[in-house]
Amino acid sequence: MTPFLPGDWLPMIFAGLMAVAILAYVVLDGFDLGVGILLETVAEEHERDRMIAAIGPFWDANETWLVLGVGLLLVAFPVAHGVILTALYMPVAIMLVALTLRGVAFEFRAKARDAAHKRRWDRWFFAGSLISALAQGWMLGRYVLGFAEGWAALGFAVMAAIGLAIAYAFIGACWLIWRTEGALQAHAIAWARHALWPVALGILLVSAVTPLVSARIAARWFDWPGIVMLAPLPILTALLVFGLARLLARMPLAEDAWHDIPFWGGTGLFVLFFAGLASSFFPYVVPERLTIWESASAPESLSIILAGAIFVLPVIVLYTVFAWRVFGGKARDLTYY
């Protein structure tokens, strides 16, 4: 089979697809991991049940985006996959164990023998969610600094780990504002308020560090014409943070108006942050080491995947929207039938 596009384009398209998959994963599994992190902050069992119910129909499909993201890295950029996953071997293994615990805790808690067992699975659910988030943040921190060694780099990774866990807790709280009501919603609003500023600080920190460690990235952001092209990202981020802070300060509004806006605003923050990182690192898939062209698979193979993806991805989006509509509105108790 011959490629139906110029060979240079395919790696670009796949880098774009992979970025979309990873972004979708971070937002989507981010909110359900965040709800897991917040699970131990509520005291009432029925509220925990409601929190779980708010993510129950979604988490499985959300996690599939991780498989797609890593799968695309594996099949489209196999060399980069090897470098990245070898460098991140231990945090990846820890994340996998944590994700496993969380995924099964969801099922086991729903089928627990008694309240004590259910409580024990709650704790596993919380621990699995938190450790997954920390491990992913650690990986982000290591990746951003190009897997640099030394205490400063490790310190940065620790901060990135904590930062991402707080960011997940934030978007999880925003999801609960949308999907719950009453005392639980008030609790979520309080958490979203608390978490917003650390999230903003984290974004600021990563934005400050990346140009400091790489002259190439600094030049891209601060030299002409990059400074104009990229200026909207920080400006929009700042506006969004202050807008969200004002909105959260006044919530809940009468008749639960705008209850979904914090979640979409939080999603906006994730998208802007991700766009900023992508602008910094493009065209590298391993920072400062491997470009997307250097690590891409053969064009024939990429084009046969693309041919399928063009038909299938819109269908996936369609039925995902359908499932979201079926489970729209405030979370009700989950029943199997």
């Binding site: 129950g56 129909p57 979604f58 499985d60 499909a61 996690e63 599939t64 498989v67 797609l68 799968g71 399928g308 993806a309 299938v312 991805l313 996936i316 039925y319 995902t320 499932a323 079926v326 489970f327 989950l334 029943t335 199997y336 039938y337």
Partner: peptide
């Protein structure tokens, strides 16, 4: 991943909780 994983994971939600 494209033809199976998303299909099963998404409709599993409806199958389990959508009755």
């Amino acid at each position: 991943v494209l033809t199976a994983f998303f299909l099963e994971a998404t409709f599993l939600g409806i199958m389990l909780f959508g009755f």
